[in-house]
Computed example of a mutant assay.
Amino acid sequence: MSYSAALLPYIPSLTTAITSIHPMTEEDLELIWPLTTYKAQQKASLVLQENDVCRHIFFLGSGLVRMFYLDESGHEINYRFTEAGHFFVDFQSVLTQQPSRYNWQALQDSQILLFPYPAIQQLYQRSTAWTNFGRLMAEHVYLQLNERVEMLLFMTPEERYRSVVSTNPGLVNQVSLLHLSSYLGIKPESLSRIRKRMMAQ
């Protein structure tokens, strides 16, 4: 394998993330390493800023990031969180190469692997396995985003919180009450009451 020493600690988790989406031979995996670069991201810094064009697909080697936007009143609304071992991207911006409406911010000191989207497109043309990977990842991103939309539309505030606790308990312990309440679409004091009520049960 040919990759820089900075990537070495994250190769196992990246390989797991890739093959969990679509099986890959060693030959197919070898194609991705020359395209991969590494970036250390400090806590509270922005990986991607609103009005910038998203030009990469990202993989979070360690840390935690959030996707958020500003509403009409300037309030930050959390749309998604990504934990270590997962890909993240503003798919609309990267596909259209139009400015993003979102910010991606590191909530912890984070280590990120970057894949330039033009190079990934060329990779899709070189390998059927990577073509299938791209399609499946697009479906995966869509389902993740749609899941949150349906959560806000069809669940009560308590059901939303219970859903996050059951599907992603680690996130609840890493994210502040303020960030989590924004994601769930409820006020912090309401979330606090829900948590106390659940603890008393």
Rank of each mutant, 00 (worst) to 15 (best):
M1L: 13
S2D: 14
Y3T: 14
L8V: 14
L8I: 11
Y10R: 07
I11F: 11
I11C: 10
P12A: 11
S13V: 15
L14W: 02
L14A: 11
T15C: 10
T16F: 06
T16A: 13
A17L: 09
A17D: 06
A17W: 09
A17H: 07
I18S: 01
T19F: 01
S20D: 14
S20R: 15
M24I: 05
T25K: 10
E27T: 13
D28F: 11
W33K: 07
T36C: 09
T37M: 04
T37D: 10
Y38T: 03
K39P: 00
Q42R: 13
S45F: 06
L46Q: 10
V47A: 08
L48V: 07
Q49Y: 04
N51D: 15
N51C: 12
D52T: 13
R55D: 09
H56L: 07
H56E: 12
I57Q: 06
I57T: 08
F58L: 13
F58N: 05
F58V: 05
L60G: 00
M67H: 09
M67P: 00
Y69E: 08
Y69R: 07
L70R: 08
L70W: 02
L70A: 08
E72N: 13
H75Q: 12
N78Y: 05
Y79A: 08
Y79W: 08
R80L: 09
A84H: 01
H86L: 09
V89F: 01
D90K: 04
D90P: 01
D90N: 09
Q92C: 04
S93M: 02
L95V: 11
P99C: 03
R101W: 01
R101G: 11
R101D: 11
Q105T: 02
Q105G: 04
L107N: 07
L107T: 03
Q108P: 00
D109E: 12
S110N: 03
S110R: 01
Q111W: 01
P116N: 02
Y117P: 00
A119M: 11
I120G: 03
Q122P: 03
L123W: 00
Y124G: 06
W130R: 07
N132R: 14
F133N: 01
G134I: 08
L136M: 15
A138E: 07
V141Q: 09
V141R: 04
Y142I: 09
Q144P: 00
E147F: 08
V149Q: 09
V149R: 10
E150N: 13
E150D: 10
E150H: 14
M151D: 11
L152N: 05
L152P: 00
L153M: 15
L153K: 15
P157S: 07
R160I: 01
Y161M: 10
Y161T: 10
Y161F: 15
R162Y: 05
S163G: 08
S163M: 13
T167K: 15
N168C: 12
P169M: 06
V175K: 06
V175W: 02
S176K: 10
S176A: 10
S176E: 03
L177C: 03
L178N: 15
H179C: 04
L180C: 02
Y183K: 03
L184T: 08
G185Y: 00
K187W: 04
K187E: 13
P188F: 02
E189H: 13
S190H: 14
L191A: 06
R193Y: 07
R193T: 03
R193P: 00
I194F: 04
R195D: 02
R195Q: 06
K196H: 14
R197S: 13
R197Y: 04
M199F: 09
M199R: 12
A200G: 02
